[in-house]
Design a protein around this nucleic acid. Structure first.
Lengths: 195, 195, 195, 195
DNA sequence: CATGAATGAGTTTTCATTCAT
DNA sequence: TATGAATGAAAACTCATTCAT
């Protein structure tokens, strides 16, 4: 009985987070109203509050959801890879996975960056993500790039974010393969330039 | 007579645009009030409306100001450069010039990307900027990169944007030299990988 | 459950419409603020918006309320009357019924005419009212006035509106009986002049 | 020198009053801005203030202009008429003279009635007009209507105002001849009904 | 006298949040 | 729990009026 209820609550929360992403994409900014999100999730405006404690909390929860999804994908690919270079590729591919590189998610990411400008918690979470990606890239690159691992990791990380940013402008469907190729070719070139 | 007046008006407008950038940076988002901007510019809230016709128009004017500054710098560097490769470097350096790569400007750029999600004019202007940078990069790269010019231009453009985005998170002073080096090294690596 | 709630909502809406009429009368013009109306209705300023969607919509709803009241009265009198001439009288009496010819309503009518100058929907509604009154007057007058029915209907309609307009200026209590007499005597005279 | 200046001042004032009428008509309400009126008159917003002392004063001056025009016409017709009945007709015709019955003037009249709801001076002026028209109508009607002169004057006055009001709704060009006929026929009928 | 830049008070409108049911 | 009616604070925007030039 409680179990079922809790399941329902969790489902509602998930619905609300999904609705938040969808609404941000539809609206194109953080200027989304709780009423709009709630309506899209099929619940009352009051409920969103009740569950998350406020708009900021809901946005943060959404952000956590995005980061968790990205991290899960990264970890899975990382664990499955067998060489350092393959581990780096796994991180790149995770960034452009079907769920992460969807137009809705891209819009949400952009908004998350904006939110991080004023919300300490959002900034903290985003910094952790950036640092973690950087650390993993370095670990993966060290065996093949040595002392240049940091620089290449830096470039690769910025490049991934840049590709996201540019797709925020496009109306065309994002092409994950092209995005991956762009980043991979750049990493390869920088590695080749070492020798 | 009129001259002096017009100069004053133009000066006030410039003040307001500068105040807009400063306020966006201070506030960290597009959620800045006209009153706040006006106060920072030392004018009444009503004046910003009077001059620009509304908040959106003021933001767009600010955007135009940023793009114009960037373009002026790019053009100057481009014209002064003597080799194709040097022209490409000029574009990169223009992107990270002291005014463009200041924390205030970085915040404003981020906001502009967000605005472009819902404002058609903002999207149009941003797309023109992206296209122009791309075109120039290709022109500069063609002699040295041949058929790979497009791919490298794409990577370089995304990288520049990515570096900006990452600095939007940092509280430390942006380091133009490091940013330029990051991009230049990547371009060099990709060019080297061709031969 | 819902029934009670809906009743409350409908009641609040009615309150707001009544408050609109009262405020227009007290203020003497369309220059009434939503805050003023809301305060008179005992609700928050935001609620009027929530319910009606804006000031214009609230005024239009008020207008609809006035026209509906007038029409209900007209129809009842019309149906109860047994001769054509009596039907005409019923229309005249409806125009000067206690609710329609109250000072508050008179003020509101004047404002409605002004609003119709710029608001298409208001103009449409007012034109429908004028046309409907005219049509009914003609139907009632035809058996007794023949080909002169149109001209007399026109005069009677204008006279009713003129009496309203003149009472908008007076501070004294409107006298329905005198108003009815004025119009009736004129209609009688014009009918008498036929034969 | 002063003469010329004063002539210019008077001309500017006249321009402003005409611009006020035109703007009220164009805008369809009292919600006209000083800036709009001034622009239409080809002067600066500040000048309208300087000349009239404020918006209310300008509107009142406009009202005075309308009433003066109407009265001049009435007096001229009255003086030229040779029988009591002809004097009454002169008043009716003055009300529907080409300048008075123009769409612009009709709009302005409506606005004047609205203004009289809250502005004491406007109400006073309008009441004087109504009383004067009434008095003159009675004087003209007395010889032919005896004790019924008051009642007929009342009806005629209300009818004139009603015809104006109804034309405020129409988009078609007002037809002075038809308006005069409507009122005249009604007066004739009421006079005929006496015998 | 004339301008029009500038002000700031006043109004509409929006929306996160609360709370009675 | 869940609703959605209601609030009220905050923001954009308007415009009569002022005043330095």
């Amino acid at each position: 009985m409680t179990g079922k209820r809790e399941a329902t609550v969790a489902a509602r929360k998930r619905d609300l987070i999904r609705a938040t992403i969808a609404t941000i994409h539809a609206e194109g900014s953080l200027d989304v109203t709780m009423a709009e999100i709630a309506a899209r999730a099929g619940v009352s405006p009051g409920l969103a509050h009740h569950y998350f404690g406020g708009k900021d909390q809901l946005i943060l929860a959404t952000m956590r959801h995005l980061l968790a999804g990205l991290q899960a994908r990264s970890r899975a690919g990382w664990d499955a890879a067998e060489t350092p270079r393959a581990r780096v590729s796994a991180l790149v591919q995770a960034s452009f996975g079907p769920e992460q590189f969807a137009p809705e998610t891209i819009s949400a990411w952009l908004v998350v960056y904006v939110m991080a400008q004023k919300n300490a918690e959002a900034a903290r979470m985003l910094r952790i993500y950036v640092r973690r990606l950087r650390t993993h890239l370095i670990v993966g690159l060290r065996p093949v790039a040595g002392g240049q691992a940091e620089a290449i990791a830096e470039a690769a990380g910025a490049l991934i974010d840049g590709v996201y940013l540019r797709h925020a402008l496009r109306s065309t469907r994002p092409d994950p393969a092209a995005a991956v190729a762009l980043v991979e070719e750049t990493i390869d070139a920088r590695l080749a330039a070492l020798g």
